[in-house]
């Protein structure tokens, strides 16, 4: 982490605080993934975890001074969207075949 090797500045403190906050958010969101109660609830929480991963990537890009990481954010956002849509299709299919 290049940003944390020099003297402490406002930006490095803010980056650190943000990392902690996003990590806590991921933990809190996974609580909803575990608790459910229904499949859509879990998928909403998983979608949020995907969004949080995109935010983590942009924060890490700042902390390590590696803008290349933003390309990974594009790919990750795409995959999170696709997986949510796939889950939604599955839920509809399941609802139709329930009876």
């Amino acid at each position: 982490m290049i940003l944390f090797e020099g003297p402490w500045t406002f930006l490095s403190v803010a980056t650190l605080v943000t990392m902690v906050a996003v990590a806590v958010s991921i933990l809190v969101a996974s609580l909803r993934v575990m608790r459910g109660p229904s499949l859509p609830d879990r998928v909403v929480a998983l979608d949020l975890v995907g969004l949080l991963a995109v935010s983590v990537i942009s924060v890490v890009a700042i902390a390590t001074q590696q803008p290349v990481l933003l390309d990974a954010a594009i790919a990750l956002a795409l995959i999170a969207f696709l997986s949510t849509v796939a889950f939604a299709r599955f839920i509809e299919w399941q609802g139709e075949n329930a009876e």
Binding site: L11, A14, L48
Partner: peptide
Amino acid sequence: ELIAGVLLLAGAAFVLVSAIGVVRFPDV
């Protein structure tokens, strides 16, 4: 640095709020 830090902290606050909301709100 000041503006970027403020944006980061604001983003962190909103992200945290959304995670708490996902746990706290009553229906999907």
